[in-house]
């Protein structure tokens, strides 16, 4: 996946091992262009510190499982879609937010019991980039 070269400074996150090659390719290309890059390998980048220090012109490049990327996107609400590149390595698992108690549960199932209130939930197509989660609601099943 091509890197967004219109930015001035960059942050790169590779959440899991599968994300590493694409993140390294991004970093290599940006260093060739002489652009400042900060990089993090692993699921818990210091995103808040990065975003506080960054100035307009910054781009965030994220690679990893969809559920992790959605959570990171939710924490980077200050950025526009045009300032973020997402590369999904795996979309089997989803984070599901319970409509009743708002607890987030990570799952690969289409129907599950909420980890917070135990509600039997169906997972909907609805995805919130603010909550970084799919909607789950009561299912009679």
């Amino acid at each position: 996946m091509a890197v967004d070269e219109s930015g001035r400074t960059f942050g790169i996150v590779a959440v899991d091992a599968a994300a590493r090659p694409v993140a390294e390719a991004w970093g290599t290309r940006l260093r060739e262009l002489g652009r400042p890059v900060q990089t993090w390998f692993g699921p818990a980048p210091p995103l808040d510190a990065w975003l506080t220090a960054a100035r307009v012109g910054y781009r965030l490049l994220l690679a990893g499982p969809e559920a992790d990327l959605l959570a990171l996107r939710a924490r980077a609400g200050v950025l526009l879609d045009a300032e973020i590149t997402l590369y999904v390595t795996d979309s089997r698992e989803r984070v599901v937010r319970c409509a009743r108690c708002r607890t987030a549960t990570r799952t690969a199932a289409a129907v599950l019991d909420c980890a917070g209130c135990g509600l039997r939930m169906a997972v909907h197509d609805h995805v919130s980039t603010v909550h970084g989660a799919h909607l789950g609601s009561w299912s009679g099943a």
Binding site: A99, H126, V127, S128, V130, H131, L135
Partner: peptide
Amino acid sequence: AFVTGMRFAEVHRP
């Protein structure tokens, strides 16, 4: 509560 912060188009996906 769930759709707050979402785009109009995303809200209507279902």
